[in-house]
């Protein structure tokens, strides 16, 4: 039986739009609007979508950097499902040790005035890992070696490292409190192609070694395919398609997923495919379209799509393949 570690139930994150001298709330930006997903221990969930679709916000809600405004985030703690949103402050804080995050830009996510040692030492002290300083230094040395960096780099400052090395350091830093789940927000999109492959391989190795669970956020569909067991495609704060990675890439059913997949250029001169070119841009999440949120850009749009909002529902005979569309293929 699958061992569920994280379960999202109808998670929402609304940002109020305030206006005037009295900061009246005149509306909401619905960055994440009712997302339900489950994630098994040791597996990777890929979150894909274009900028502004809410994938990073959702990631930050899971880690606790943003407080979700609705729904439940259930996390399995000692075989008991606990809702992160209803925990008290102390419990919620302790959860940060279990769920860590790797950020997109390795240049701005390391403090330039701290050595690597200082940057690693602080979270370890806070979460009480390693009783003495020597113990902690030993652990940092080990961590650096697991990400294939020499241990004596711990006394250096971030500016002495290249982008790829910094991202390794960021991964090691996230690992230093021994987390179970890592939320990785576009961990390779700022890196060069040859470095990207090194980091992706490293992340896969780490996952196997430590039985880590990943939430892997990226806009690059081929990278997500490489990393993930399950993939959720997001559009304007909603999940529009959710399936096993192999299934999703073989049989994309939502028109948006089909368009996304067809838009990825393939490095092969003989592959000529029919590209679906979407018109227009993603609408603003402050004023999402009525009905299906994708209908203004959809080529299969019918009358029904303009007024009714399709729910995410499972396709027939497709283990767990869910689509939010009235007319899936």
């Amino acid at each position: 039986m699958a061992d569920v570690i994280l379960e999202l139930q109808d998670v929402q994150k609304y940002y109020p739009i305030v206006k005037g001298a009295f900061h009246q709330v005149v509306g909401h930006v619905k960055a994440v609007d009712g997302v339900s997903l489950t994630l098994n221990r040791g597996e990777t969930l890929g979150l894909v979508g274009e900028s502004g679709c809410g994938k990073t916000t959702l990631g930050k809600c899971i880690v606790g950097l943003h407080e979700a405004t609705g729904g439940k985030i259930l996390y399995t703690l000692n075989d008991e499902k606990r809702d992160l949103l209803s925990m008290n402050k102390k419990e919620r804080f302790a959860m940060k040790r279990r769920i860590q995050m790797v950020f997109q830009d390795p240049y701005s996510s390391l403090n330039p005035s701290q050595t690597i040692l200082q940057a690693f030492d602080e979270p370890m002290q806070i979460h009480g890992i390693g009783k003495t300083r020597t113990e902690r230094i030993e652990r940092i040395a080990q961590l650096l070696e697991t990400v294939q960096l020499p241990a004596d780099y711990m006394n250096r400052f971030p500016h002495e490292f290249s982008g790829g090395q910094r991202q390794r350091i960021c991964i090691a830093r996230a690992m230093c409190v021994n987390p179970e789940t890592l939320v990785c927000d576009e961990p390779v999109s700022a890196l060069d192609v040859s470095i990207q492959a090194q980091i992706l391989n490293l992340m896969k190795d780490l996952q196997q070694e430590k039985n880590l669970t990943y939430v892997f956020i990226a806009h690059d569909l081929s990278v997500v395919e490489f990393m993930s067991d399950w993939v959720a495609v997001m559009y304007l704060g909603r999940v529009v398609e959710y399936a096993r990675a192999s299934e999703l890439y073989r049989r994309p059913s939502h028109p948006y997923t089909q368009a996304l997949l067809s838009a990825v250029p393939i490095p092969d001169v003989d592959v000529k495919k029919d590209q679906i070119i979407l018109e227009g841009d993603v609408p603003s999440p402050a004023h999402p379209p009525r009905g299906c949120r994708f209908h203004p850009r959809c080529w299969k749009c019918q009358e029904r799509c303009k007024c009714e909002d399709p729910a995410l529902s499972e396709l027939k005979d497709a283990q767990g393949h869910c689509v939010a569309c009235f007319y899936p293929d």
């Binding site: 290249s162 040859s194 090194q198 391989n201 081929s222 393939i266 490095p267």
Partner: peptide, 24 residues
């Protein structure tokens, strides 16, 4: 060759990516 092998290609899932060692 390395550049071509290092990028994951849609629809051709591999277990590991080829990576060019070191950095520029």
């Amino acid at each position: 060759q390395g550049l071509l092998k290092a990028v994951p290609v849609l629809g051709m899932k591999k277990d590991r990516l080829y990576s060019i060692k070191g950095s520029t």
